[in-house]
């Protein structure tokens, strides 16, 4: 037999089969393929290694690879399920899937909990909430008296920490979000409803075009 030259497209090491990713997420196969185009762009903006590094994530979010932001860090780390310091293609698709309008509300609530659980202890603690409020004030160039910050944090915490043990567990968080559904508003990206319509420029690839 002669040698067989494959025309399969070149994919990076972290590439996962779009069919499998589509089965696990609200995206269909062509949407996963379209998002791969976005992923390739993001993951090659600084280091072309098929993985999104934190600087690349910051560059995409803020047009500045050096702009640090507590919340962007938390989003990055929550995408980075393997905790190896980069976002791989499968991690990117699975996490974005949670932001899909059709994703289960439960998964959005749990993702938000993980974002706010800064030290990944399984609880949102009072100090973490205060740290986030202070970080946001800093980010927004707002100044509030220390007493006011303490009052806001205390009030929020007393409302959410229904067991009164000084920390918010995931059950308390779910109950708190059910009373305040706007808390997960930013967990839905309407764009993802129909990627191929909203972002036709992503849909340029096919197995043949890519080879």
């Amino acid at each position: 037999m002669g040698c067989f030259l494959s025309k399969r497209p070149k994919h990076t090491a972290g590439y996962e089969d779009p069919t499998l990713l589509a089965a696990e997420t609200p995206f269909n196969v062509s949407e996963v393929e379209a998002l791969y185009e976005l992923f390739k762009k993001l993951s090659s903006s600084i280091v072309d290694d098929g993985r999104i590094h934190k600087e690349e994530f910051q560059l995409a979010l803020f047009r500045n690879k050096n702009k640090r932001n507590l919340f962007a860090d938390r989003v990055f780390d929550t995408f980075d399920v393997k905790r190896n310091g980069v976002i791989e293609f499968g991690e990117f698709i699975r996490a974005l899937g949670i932001f899909h309008p059709n994703a289960p509300v439960e998964s959005k609530i749990e993702f938000a909990f993980r974002l706010y659980d800064l030290r990944q202890t399984g609880f949102i603690e009072r100090e973490e909430l205060k740290e986030m409020v202070l970080a946001l004030l800093h980010e927004s160039d707002l100044v509030l008296l220390e007493d006011v910050v303490e009052t806001i944090v205390d009030k929020t915490f007393s409302d959410a920490d229904t067991k009164g043990d000084g920390k918010i567990d995931v059950e308390e968080w779910k109950e708190f979000v059910s009373r305040n559904p706007s808390l997960i508003k930013n967990m839905t990206l309407p764009y993802l409803k129909d990627i191929t319509l909203a972002f036709p420029s992503f849909v340029v690839t096919s197995e043949v075009d890519d080879s």
């Binding site: 976005l38 762009k41 993001l42 995409a60 979010l61 803020f62 932001n69 507590l70 919340f71 962007a72 860090d73 938390r74 989003v75 974005l96 932001f99 938000a112 974002l115 706010y116 909430l129 986030m132 409020v133 946001l136 980010e139 927004s140 806001i152 944090v153 009030k155 929020t156 409302d159 959410a160 708190f176 305040n180 706007s182 808390l183 997960i184 508003k185 930013n186 990206l189 764009y191 909203a198 972002f199 420029s201 992503f202």
Partner: peptide, 25 residues
């Protein structure tokens, strides 16, 4: 009205606005 710290964070932080990822295209 009760000032909810989580609402303040989620609605105001640019770090949560993933739409920028798409706008980079």
């Amino acid at each position: 009205k009760f000032f909810n710290a989580f609402e303040f964070i989620s609605s105001m932080s640019s770090g949560f606005d993933l739409s920028s990822l798409f706008e980079s295209k």
